[in-house]
């Protein structure tokens, strides 16, 4: 079974989730837990770093959809950064760039949070 892990860092009031490995239907609960915990502690400004993510399936994409409404209702957002071309293509096919802000790196995303 493909491996997947996450780590969460705090940068001020912004939380950064780093993804690593293969995100699919079997590993999605790990990421779901991260989102649930952040929401429970009222941290709604979230940056997800895709740098070490090798693969994402449609079920993996679903995780982002599950929480975005709640987070935006609380004046927060999920911003996505450091996607490889392959991962970006998957997001792009489904039209995710229309729904999420996607940046080249963390700094840009953080700046965007601070600016708004």
């Amino acid at each position: 079974m493909a491996e997947f892990s996450t780590s969460v860092q705090e940068r001020g009031d912004i939380s950064i989730i780093n993804l690593k490995g293969f995100l699919d239907a079997h590993t999605a609960p790990t990421l779901e837990n991260n989102f649930t915990q952040l929401i429970n502690s009222s941290k709604y400004k979230i940056v997800v770093n895709f740098e070490d993510l090798a693969y994402i399936s449609s079920a993996g994409l679903g995780v982002f959809m599950a929480y975005i409404e709640n987070i935006r209702d609380n004046k927060g957002d999920i911003k996505l950064t450091n996607m490889s071309d392959k991962v970006f293509n998957i997001f792009d096919l489904l039209g995710f760039p229309l729904l999420y802000e996607i940046y080249k790196n963390e700094e840009e995303a953080i700046k965007k949070f601070s600016g708004s």
């Binding site: 449609s58 079920a59 994409l61 679903g62 995780v63 959809m65 599950a66 409404e69 096919l93 489904l94």
Partner: peptide
């Protein structure tokens, strides 16, 4: 559909 399910 529930919020995390979609269809292409």
């Amino acid at each position: 559909l529930d919020s995390k399910t979609f269809v292409s």
